[in-house]
Amino acid sequence: MSVSTRIAVIAVGDPSRHDEGVGRAALSRLRERALERPFPPGTLLSECDLDPGRLIRL
């Protein structure tokens, strides 16, 4: 039996609403890390504003 793992890291926030930006900062660091040590296949690193429809699609 094969086990498939999918990892999703989604930074949720909206700079125009003056959130603290922690999610975007963490995502930026993860992207930098991935250049040296790639994540497993299927890993999703993405940003999303506060729109629930876009978040569900991710």
Results as ranks from 00 to 15, higher is better:
residue 50 L to D: 09
residue 10 I to Y: 03
residue 14 D to P: 10
residue 42 G to D: 04
residue 50 L to P: 02
residue 20 E to M: 03
residue 20 E to F: 01
residue 27 L to G: 00
residue 48 C to K: 00
residue 6 R to E: 15
residue 3 V to L: 14
residue 54 R to N: 11
residue 48 C to E: 01
residue 15 P to I: 02
residue 26 A to N: 14
residue 50 L to T: 14
residue 16 S to L: 04
residue 53 G to A: 13
residue 30 L to E: 11
residue 50 L to Y: 05
residue 25 A to I: 10
residue 57 R to L: 12
residue 16 S to V: 11
residue 9 V to P: 03
residue 35 L to M: 09
residue 32 E to K: 09
residue 58 L to D: 03
residue 7 I to K: 08
residue 22 V to L: 13
residue 33 R to D: 12
residue 47 E to A: 08
residue 44 L to P: 00
residue 23 G to D: 00
residue 38 P to N: 01
residue 39 F to N: 06
residue 35 L to W: 02
residue 51 D to P: 09
residue 49 D to A: 02
residue 4 S to C: 13
residue 35 L to Y: 01
residue 15 P to T: 08
residue 17 R to E: 06
residue 37 R to A: 08
residue 12 V to C: 08
residue 11 A to T: 05
residue 29 R to W: 10
residue 31 R to H: 11
residue 43 T to Y: 07
residue 50 L to E: 02
residue 24 R to K: 07
residue 51 D to F: 07
residue 2 S to V: 06
residue 44 L to R: 11
residue 12 V to E: 00
residue 44 L to F: 03
residue 12 V to T: 12
residue 8 A to Y: 10
residue 39 F to I: 11
residue 22 V to P: 06
residue 49 D to C: 02
residue 43 T to R: 07
residue 20 E to Y: 05
residue 45 L to Y: 03
residue 4 S to D: 14
residue 53 G to W: 05
residue 58 L to Q: 11
residue 30 L to K: 07
residue 56 I to N: 07
residue 18 H to R: 07
residue 12 V to L: 07
residue 20 E to L: 06
residue 43 T to C: 10
residue 29 R to V: 10
residue 48 C to I: 00
residue 52 P to L: 03
residue 14 D to S: 13
residue 52 P to F: 05
residue 14 D to V: 03
residue 44 L to T: 15
residue 5 T to M: 08
residue 47 E to S: 08
residue 26 A to G: 14
residue 36 E to W: 02
residue 57 R to V: 14
residue 53 G to I: 13
residue 27 L to H: 00
residue 16 S to H: 07
residue 46 S to H: 04
residue 53 G to P: 14
residue 48 C to Y: 01
residue 31 R to K: 09
residue 42 G to Q: 06
residue 3 V to Q: 14
residue 8 A to G: 15
residue 46 S to Y: 02
residue 15 P to H: 05
residue 16 S to T: 11
residue 52 P to R: 07
residue 58 L to C: 13
